[in-house]
């Protein structure tokens, strides 16, 4: 961008502020590009490309986001420090996402098992046949308090309970510890 207008030509020392000013043409151009990309992403979503779907739509979104960040938000012309700050936020967010994604599949089965054991009535899915039985419970709007009454009996030490009781691999190792604890109660 050769268009480097300094706002404020005449100035006493303190009354000047040098910034980059983006020309109107560029602004409107970016907007039009963004609209075109929106149309493309909507159209692209109509074709079933399987797993590629997410990738394509995220790629387009990222292109759009970069346009906004670099032009509308002036990051392209901004100080390196501000660039760095924004860059780091993305890196940290990405790292966070990767780790929890990586991990969530590992224990998914335990959670599923738990869900199947303890699902409250209102969530139980009602196929036509089961409907009469389950429906009254749903309709009477069972109060959350009702099924939590029993809960306070289990102390917060139960935090890791689902894990401890549903984790086959480490069972052998945790047993002595678990015994220890129940003993000391």
């Amino acid at each position: 961008m050769s268009d480097h207008v300094e706002s404020d030509a005449h100035a006493e020392n303190t009354q000047s502020c040098h910034v980059h000013i983006v020309p109107v043409k560029v602004l409107v151009g970016v907007f039009l590009a963004l609209v075109v990309l929106t149309v493309i992403t909507v159209e692209a979503a109509k074709y079933d490309t399987g797993a590629l779907d997410v990738i394509v739509s995220m790629a387009i979104a990222t292109v759009k986001a970069s346009l906004v960040v670099f032009i509308f938000m002036h990051l392209w012309y901004d100080k390196p420090l501000n660039k760095l700050a924004f860059f780091f936020s993305i890196v940290f967010a990405a790292f966070f996402l990767c780790m929890i994604l990586l991990d969530s599949h590992a224990y998914d089965n335990y959670v599923k098992g738990f869900t199947e054991d303890k699902t409250p009535e209102f969530l139980v899915k009602e196929p036509e046949a089961a409907a009469p039985a389950a429906a009254p419970a749903a309709a009477t709007d069972a109060k959350p308090a009702a099924d939590t009454k029993a809960a306070p009996a289990e102390k917060p030490a139960d935090e890791k309970k689902p894990a401890a009781s549903e984790k086959p691999e480490t069972d052998k190792k945790t047993t002595p510890e678990t015994i220890d604890k129940t003993d000391s109660k």
């Binding site: 000047s16 502020c17 040098h18 501000n82 936020s89 966070f96 996402l97």
Partner: peptide
């Protein structure tokens, strides 16, 4: 000391605020 300093300070401040916003939403995206 100067408007330039004031502006730069504010600009860094808002960028860092945006950083916190990105991380705030990263929880939702996660």
């Amino acid at each position: 000391d100067s408007h330039q300093q004031q502006f730069d300070t504010g600009k860094l401040g808002i960028w860092i605020f945006l950083v916190t916003e990105v991380l705030f939403f990263s929880g939702l995206f996660g």
